[in-house]
Write a protein that binds this DNA or RNA. Sequence first.
DNA 1: GGCTTTATGTCAAACGTTTGCCATACTGCG
DNA 2: CGCAGTATGGCAAACGTTTGACATAAAGCC
Lengths: 363, 363
Amino acid sequence: MIKQLKSEAMQERGKAAERDDLRQGRGVATLEDVARAAGVHYSTVSRALDPNKVWRVNVVTRKHVQAVARRMGYQRDMVASGLKRGRTHTVAVVVADLGNPFIAPVLRGIANRLEQAGLMSMISDTQDDSARLERILNHLLSRRVDAIILTAAHLGDGPVLRRISRQGTPVVLAVRNVPGIRLPACTDDDLLGGTLAARHLLALGHRRVAQLRGPADVYSFVERAAGFSKTVAAAGAVEVEVPSTGLTPTLDEGGRLMRLLLDRKRVMPTAIFAHNDLMALGALAVMRERGLNCPKDFSVIGYNDSPQVDRVMPPLTTIRQPGEELGRTAAEMTVGLLTSPDRPPASRSLAPTLVVRESTAPR
Amino acid sequence: MIKQLKSEAMQERGKAAERDDLRQGRGVATLEDVARAAGVHYSTVSRALDPNKVWRVNVVTRKHVQAVARRMGYQRDMVASGLKRGRTHTVAVVVADLGNPFIAPVLRGIANRLEQAGLMSMISDTQDDSARLERILNHLLSRRVDAIILTAAHLGDGPVLRRISRQGTPVVLAVRNVPGIRLPACTDDDLLGGTLAARHLLALGHRRVAQLRGPADVYSFVERAAGFSKTVAAAGAVEVEVPSTGLTPTLDEGGRLMRLLLDRKRVMPTAIFAHNDLMALGALAVMRERGLNCPKDFSVIGYNDSPQVDRVMPPLTTIRQPGEELGRTAAEMTVGLLTSPDRPPASRSLAPTLVVRESTAPR
DNA sequence: GGCTTTATGTCAAACGTTTGCCATACTGCG
DNA sequence: CGCAGTATGGCAAACGTTTGACATAAAGCC
């Protein structure tokens, strides 16, 4: 009965004010606009719309306020909210190269999981350059992103990452790890991946092999190289050295290394382990332009199982990294870190698998 | 002389305060921290660090403040600044599908241009779903992004876009246009693209052709279809209808349509125009699984010239959209819109080109 | 010397939310 | 009826920056 009255009174107050629904700022309603229209104080509106605070407001008032807010199309201003609460509900995702098709599933995994948690992802591209990375990280810090998922780490980035982390923004490493850093990471087991690649080539009877190496300051490639070399050596096979490593793990660099290898007038390998699919594709292109055939002249194995490499010519044998799962898990860890910052999630390493196609053949 | 004194006094004041450089909040310096350390009012710090306001502060003070700020690693809090100024220096880029390799160059073009203007890009993926798009747009609004570059528009999105635009956030259309909307757009000339595809097939002697259509509510595909059909009809050739259109322009849908076409026990086309490369690839996969050969049994032409389609089997004939340029131009328009909101940039339509490879052959 | 300029810094009010605290009114209880 | 207890809403101070308005002092001018 009393509630009834209350409600009616509110509607009266309401009507009077609703005529000029919005002040004419941006065409967006603020708490104060809604408050005026609903005939209550704006703090009440704030509470009525905050699931964690609704219990502070009477159910009748709440319904009324919510209705008015909905009608006016009120949307909480995340900037103001972010300033006050210190949470922007934004997670930055830093990638090395958006042009690498492998990254797409990772991003999808991340975005999907983050969205479930009400977080948005903000993607930036370092172009595999540490200086750019540092600039980007500073920028992100000043934007107060809630966390950073970094898939573009180089070995030398440790100090910067520690600084960022110390300043209070959680950092989660994905895909690329940095050894010795105390940061949760979700990566592929690259040592195993390199081993699988070597075993496959050895099993096909290859005794002279070579690697087209990715950047030496990226841990993933260091590990792939190590796993590969160790396995090759253990089998007593010989590894032919390519006199350079890729500056970036890209098509062009893969091509450059392949040319370098071919131009050395020395003993040739019969099989090649490219540190990622893009480099493998680059190498294949060079082979084609020199009239060489894969897998006849060279067996080639890539890494990542990027989308579409099953359709190139020849379909690429490769090591599959579980891209989407890596992304999802990294996002999962990030969410965990945000909800309970005290207990940081344990790092995880996911096992890659060998995918045999037609770019590798028995010797 | 006087300035000298001033400077010394400042240093005195400074020293006293610098001992406890930071209040212990987040490990980040605020204007007030810097002000205390430098012995001036925080508004002075704000001005000393704002290129547009430095003239308001004496050169000695300025140098001093800047030095202190640098030493303390001060970084302007973009959230607070955004709240006050109403500019977040963030541009949202909305894409339909990050898994579409064609989008990578577009994004690179956008990011590079925006970065020059001191803007960050925030990427989100609608998965080609209008409901998701609306949710995302609302979210972006509440985050007060400075502008939105939309590459994922559907025909039905007009009202939503108008609403967003009316509420004060500039929207620029890229890649996909929406006819009749008064929004600057930077798109490919899809009508021409469809025409080029048809001409190419006709020139090869094909008289029965079919289209694997992208979503009927995306203008790009409508245009491609129109350009193609018109040209085919004008030449007196016959267009075999596929009894469905792709729900999304993806690999799977391309495959589905191809199956549908093959399963109809009716007259078969000799050439196929897939509305994008992904759909073409999907169709090729189905052909392979049915033991059909491209280009022997069917010539196939795609659209976009996505990265890597020159390496698939058979290398894909396709219509090239200038992805990076599309992105760069859209970003350019956005920057223009932000610097002079009064005079909106004119829409632009870039011409596509035919890229002939091996998936098309004479009939 | 008294006057107006000009240069430079400080003050304080925003921006839109969030939230601890207070005021009020109502409830239940002896 | 008086009092503690509870439910509910308002008040106002933050969050960190920006910026118009003001204060102060020095400089220029007659």
